[in-house]
């Protein structure tokens, strides 16, 4: 952005390394974006086109020139010799010529790019997007805050204090990561039902306020690397444990917080089984439950709407990552400590 050309500067020779990096970046990005391209292009098609075989690369529609007006048509039966085709005009219900049928020569039909933007409002309306968004946001925000606070507290405890049983408890905590969550599903459901919390957000939020082994481990690894001298210095200045945690450790752990926030956000935002089991009422449902409603009992119907809805649903995750990624890049505090 600040690149101003300096005539005095010698022209650099072509950097082989940079060429390699850029070509790998391009290639990787290209491959990774294909599925997204597929999602986007299908979200802008009609249902018939989304299911077409062979598939179209872009949302297209057929048009016929009638009395100087180019009108969109749907194709019908062909004649036996493949010369002419029956078409039905499709230009919206309020147009006077809508629904007219004509037989035209195959050659008169031309295909134009026709993205169906209306799929987006339709998809959002169908899944009651606003309500689901509010529910998901509340749950996610509470979970992210809880996860960061609780996991960093516990990680701090494991990292900076000597107490008997510490190593045993730490190994115990790590081993609980290996338990398939399906095992505890029913006992937990019974527990939360007895607490009267079914159809509320609490069964989804409370576990996140009690630390997760995965994130505790990450915080603990990070906190163990903070030099003891720094903590001693703080102690000499009269800081207690809470102060050291709040004013020294947390601000230092920006990169870990960013990772925990992103991971928790993604997990909660996309969680399906939890909301499915604990939330009952339609007005409490989250985005994933609303998305799954496109998957009827007879397979997915309206694939194009599902794709549109999925795209909108994952936008917040993309934006969040884009905004938060500079925290792992600018972890100056962490690297500065080491030098």
């Amino acid at each position: 952005m600040m690149a101003t050309s300096n005539p005095l500067k010698k022209r650099k020779p072509i950097d082989g390394h940079a060429v390699l990096v850029y070509s790998l970046l391009f290639l990787g990005a290209f491959l990774l974006l294909i599925p997204f391209y597929w999602m986007l292009t299908n979200s802008l098609k009609t249902e018939a086109e989304a299911m077409a075989n062979p598939p179209t690369l872009l949302p297209m529609a057929s048009y016929v020139e009638l009395e100087g007006e180019s009108l969109e048509v749907s194709l019908g039966e062909k004649d036996d010799t493949n010369q002419t085709i029956r078409v039905t005009i499709k230009v919206g219900a309020d147009h006077p010529r809508n629904g007219e049928e004509h037989v035209v020569a195959q050659a008169d039909i031309h295909r134009n790019l026709t993205p169906r933007w209306e799929n987006y409002p339709r998809a959002l309306e169908r899944m009651d997007f606003m309500g689901a968004l509010a529910n998901t946001t509340v749950i996610t925000v509470l979970c992210v805050i809880g996860q960061i606070l609780s996991s960093s507290l516990v990680g701090f405890g494991f990292a900076r204090f000597r107490f008997r049983g510490r190593n045993f408890l730490f190994m115990l905590m790590l081993s609980t990561m290996m338990l398939p969550p399906q095992v505890s599903m029913i006992p937990l459901f019974i527990l939360f039902r007895n607490l009267g919390m079914i159809d509320t957000i609490w069964p989804l939020v409370i576990p996140m306020w009690l630390g997760s082994p995965f994130y505790v481990f990450m915080f603990r690894q990070f906190f163990t690397q903070v030099p003891e001298e720094l903590v001693e210095a703080a102690r000499i200045d009269g800081a207690g444990n809470t102060m050291i945690y709040w004013r020294l450790m947390l601000p230092l752990s920006g990169p870990v917080i960013a990772i925990v926030a992103i991971y928790t956000f993604m997990f909660v935002w996309n969680d399906f089984l939890g909301p499915l089991i604990y939330l009952n009422s339609p007005e409490n449902r989250t985005l994933t439950l609303a998305l799954n409603a496109f998957n009827g009992n007879y397979g997915v119907s309206d694939v194009q709407l599902l794709m549109a809805a999925s795209f909108v649903t994952m936008l917040p995750c993309i934006l969040l990552f884009f905004a938060a990624q500079r925290y792992f890049v600018q972890s100056t505090a962490a690297s500065g400590l080491k030098g």
Partner: peptide, 13 residues
């Protein structure tokens, strides 16, 4: 962002 984004798609979609 491009390399990260695929991991946010999940479930039915």
């Amino acid at each position: 962002t491009v390399f990260f984004v695929p991991s946010v798609v999940s479930g039915v979609a």
